[in-house]
Simulated assay, not measured.
Amino acid sequence: MASLHISNVRKAYGPTEILKNINIDVTDGDFLVLVGPSGCGKSTLLSLIAGLDTISGGEIRIDNDRVNDLHPSERDIAMVFQSYALYPNMTVGQNISFGLEMRKVSKVERDKAVADAARLLQIEHLIKRRPGQLSGGQRQRVAMGRALVRDPKIFLFDEPLSNLDAKLRVDMRTEIKKLHQRLGATIVYVTHDQIEAMTLATRIAVMKGGVIQQFGTPAEIYSTPANTFVATFMGSPSMNLIPAVLTTRSDTLVLTMGEGSAAVRLDLPAQSAAVARYAGKKVIAGLRPEAIGVESSRVPDAVREVAVKVLVMEPTGPDTLAALEMGGVEVAARLGADIPHSPGEHCNLRVDLSKLVLFDAQTEERIA
């Protein structure tokens, strides 16, 4: 396996800039997920790594080798496509071994590689079948097997699960995670699905408009989003963003959400000096749904009680999603499965302010 270094990479088609100064460092064995809305440039970046398109500026290195001008066949990468790209007239075994055959690998070695990949992916019983006789999940395993036998430095996945139904997508996601854990492979994976990104990645690059909005671990992306775009794009339901004002009372910072009689005023636990400098200014308060209606917290001193009105309750089985009115603003909360409240009811819920994230009201960047 290998490391991947992307330095100041740009891609433009005429005057239209698709990627703008992309910088990413992936270490050996990392699982990098490129995530973002359609048209953000994530698939374009994957194509540049693969050598299927040329870069307009910057540098891509695999290990210490600059690959900008290398043909895809010389980069030692293997790609798994959204469309599977299997040959319909070949059996599963022939599809998996075709690339090796083109490289003049001996039949003995080919057969061993195919058998090893089939065993790893649990498709030994499908070796003699053709793609038309397989389900979508089985076809995706065959496409992965074809990549595996190459034993490349880097695996590239281009939205490989988007054609599968919801349950199969979850199952295949688990299989890909297991595969990464077994192989310790370096993987770059493109998706627009933030659940896939959070569950699969060791590193995530959130993209928008050809720019990386944030690069970090799933925990960093989720708990300390760099801006309001990342805050709302990652997480389901997304982070609540509530217009607020910071003031001081004695030596305590007070967060006021809403206006007039509906306003909610909360004494904040100790904050950073950067947050303290916003006293007297408008901010955006970010709270994840699970921070509202908590029963306990790792930081008990950060828990506050807040008056809310229940608007909608959506039982999901293990928990209940609720739409609440708090400070005159509608917010989403993830409550317990047996929460004893009903729509229209006024009640008090506990809010965990240790999970509060504050953003600049003008720039929408997180206040560190």
Rank of each mutant, 00 (worst) to 15 (best):
S3W: 05
N8Y: 04
V9H: 09
K20D: 02
N21P: 10
I24N: 09
D30R: 08
L34V: 00
V35L: 13
P37N: 05
S38F: 12
T44S: 15
L45Y: 11
L48V: 01
T54C: 06
I60F: 00
I60D: 01
I62L: 14
D63G: 14
N64V: 00
V67F: 02
V67E: 02
H71C: 05
S73P: 00
E74V: 00
Q82N: 09
Q82V: 07
S83D: 10
Y84N: 08
Y87A: 01
N89Q: 13
G93A: 15
Q94H: 05
N95P: 05
I96N: 12
S97C: 12
M102V: 15
S106Q: 12
A117L: 14
I127H: 01
P131V: 11
L134T: 14
Q138T: 07
Q138A: 07
R141A: 01
P152Q: 09
K153W: 05
L156Q: 03
F157V: 00
D158S: 12
S162G: 13
N163K: 02
L168E: 05
R173I: 02
T174Y: 04
R182T: 14
T186Y: 04
T199W: 00
R203L: 13
V206W: 10
Q213D: 02
P218L: 06
I221N: 10
P225V: 08
M234L: 15
M234E: 01
T248P: 07
S250L: 11
D251A: 11
T252K: 13
L253I: 14
V254W: 04
L255E: 11
T256K: 11
R265A: 07
Q271Y: 07
A273W: 03
V275F: 01
V275M: 02
R277C: 04
A285R: 06
E290T: 06
A291I: 00
G293K: 08
E295H: 11
E295Y: 07
V306F: 03
V312P: 04
L324A: 09
E325V: 08
E330Q: 14
A337D: 11
P340F: 08
E345S: 13
E345V: 10
E345Y: 11
R350L: 11
L353T: 06
K355Y: 06
L356C: 08
V357R: 10
V357M: 13
L358T: 05
D360E: 08
T363N: 10
